[in-house]
Design a protein around this nucleic acid. Structure first.
Lengths: 337, 337
DNA sequence: CTGTTAGCGCGTTCAC
DNA sequence: GTGAACGCGCTAACAG
């Protein structure tokens, strides 16, 4: 046999077979429990595996089995404190099921999502799409091609793909109720990414709250603390007595700028966040917000994917409830009506 | 040809070749730019690729080339706010070099690290080991087997492996200088994981500060806010007027408990963190700490690995400087000597 | 410049 | 129960 190129693999299944005095096929059988093997042989194989430090080559295995043993995860922003906990849960579930995890981030740029997804599909058995902003058509297209995938924090009506999300609508309704009961009538919403489904849900709920007498002004903003900081200046002229932000990061930025502007929270203005990102350990969890069960979200999402990949799809959309966390940034308006 | 099992791959290089009326080899050549190909043929290939939506199978490519196009990253805890930013930077660099990123976490359990590393090596071209607590021997062993890897936040003397770390020693010295100048003489250190090299560096520097008259008490603690919370009770009886924590998370937990105990910071006790995890956007970045350039750390680490994999190793240990961030948790001791 | 051929390491069918 | 042979999809050497 010619040795054309540098052999990247240190020890192969053939080496193990040779060392144990059996054929490669038998080694494979022992390692995968595919068929009954004589106990004595099996022992010799195990010994050889240990001695040589043999590890099956994942690429070769993948090629032969048509499976990679890997799941892919796409997130918009790794640095968003929103995701690490989710990834942690996903990682744990995946590992428990014998899967490795490949992670990519779109850097909040929806345009690159298709490319990243395609790239993930080249080496993954299934996909976890977190908050994808991809147009509905493309998602449908992906699903049609039969790629196992689970949608996280996006529900696409009429698409038979397992989906799980936090109940943003319900969470926003909790916020509205809280504000209404405090006596607020005019609220501003610092809106997140336009194309985000989760942002749309928040807005839907805020608009529905008109029934309770809440007047709404939507201010395009963004998803980061910096966005919240720069947009804060526009709040005052809306006449709002309370401001709801896309998430807690935006709220933090807003609070920071409000302080600079000399606007007191909550006396002059109530501020309410979204996601419960604030550290409870600061001993000063000041921001009123709604909490999101991130750990659960990650765990259940990964579980849905594992089920899907073993042929037990569950395409019912799952909705995780949020909870109101009342703290020091909300109070009755200065001049309640 | 027999079709033994379900064909997982929708469209192969052979399909593309057939559609374009060329051999698979030519398709490969066009896609990889391996050799000159007639322009007309190349166009037909490109067209076929687009039409069929062809994507090379990563496993097959990896097997044939002996490369996976993937780098592996091992971190102790994904949920630690310390890592997301690092991962983000790593991910960006890797992608820019045409590599995918596989991430595993040891859940702060050093015992599983070898297993995880072995698992990563089955499908990665190179490894980024973040804060590995692995015994020196095992690291040496890994290195000896010729696996490309870079050590992040751990320097192993005498090991010719590219390494990059924050200058914990220098950062701690900054802290000591700050405390000494404020007039502190007795400091307690809430220690991180025993086996952590970074923790050892902090202690080394704290001990060296004895030369400036600082008396040190080391209290075993941990790396989380919860650890800081439970350990805070032990500070008082050391007689320390200032406490240095393993990181900002621990500091937050400590602050929270101190407040409950009625110990005022910084009047009764100065508290100083490590890592600059506090969000600057809270508008109340109260914790005095030293900052760590996480983005730079991730970027340079990934770059070192890319260089290593292309055969340009740089085994000089790199040390990134920290900077003192003075805020509201440090002040002169109540009874300066 | 292009098609044919072999082999990457493994799982698996088929004979023994 | 076990080994030999083949193919997964792709790239690299070879021949034309």
């Amino acid at each position: 046999m010619r040795r054309l190129r540098a052999n990247t693999q240190r020890v192969t299944i053939t080496d193990v077979g040779a060392a144990a005095g059996v054929s490669p096929a038998t080694v494979s059988r022992v390692l995968n429990g595919t068929a009954k093997v004589d106990a004595a042989l099996a022992d010799r194989v195990q010994a050889a595996v240990r001695t040589l430090g043999y590890r099956p080559n994942a690429a070769a295995q993948g090629l032969a089995k048509g499976r990679w043993g890997t799941i892919g995860v796409l997130v918009p922003d790794l640095a968003n404190p929103y995701f690490p906990e989710i990834l942690k849960a996903v990682s744990a579930v995946a590992r428990a099921n014998g899967h490795r995890v490949m992670i990519m981030e779109s850097e909040e740029n929806p345009a690159v999502e298709p490319e990243l997804v395609a790239d993930l599909l080249r080496s993954c058995d299934g996909l976890l799409l977190c908050s994808p902003r991809m147009p509905r058509d493309q998602l449908v297209d992906l699903a049609d091609r039969g790629h196992p995938m689970v949608l996280v924090n996006r529900i696409v009506p009429g698409l038979a793909v397992p989906s799980i999300s936090v109940d943003f609508y319900g969470g926003t309704t909790l916020i509205c109720g809280h504000l209404a009961q405090l006596g607020h009538r005019d609220v501003a919403y610092l809106s997140g990414p336009e194309s985000s489904w989760a942002n749309g849900e928040r807005i839907r709920a805020l608009e529905a709250a008109a029934a309770f007498g809440l007047r709404l002004t939507v201010i395009p903003c963004g998803a980061t603390a910096a966005d919240g900081y720069t947009t804060a200046d526009q709040i005052r002229r809306t006449g709002a007595t309370a401001v709801v932000t896309y998430n807690d990061l935006v709220a933090q930025g807003t609070l920071s700028r409000l302080r600079e502007l000399g606007i007191d929270v909550p006396t002059d203005l109530s501020v309410i966040g979204f996601d419960n990102l604030s550290l409870d350990w600061t001993g000063q969890a000041t921001l009123t917000t709604v909490s999101m069960p991130r750990d659960q979200l990650g765990r259940q999402a990964a579980t849905l994917l594992e089920h899907l990949m073993t042929g037990t799809p569950d395409t019912n959309p799952h909705l995780l409830p949020m909870q109101l966390r009342t703290h020091q940034t909300t109070a009755p308006p200065r001049h309640p009506i």
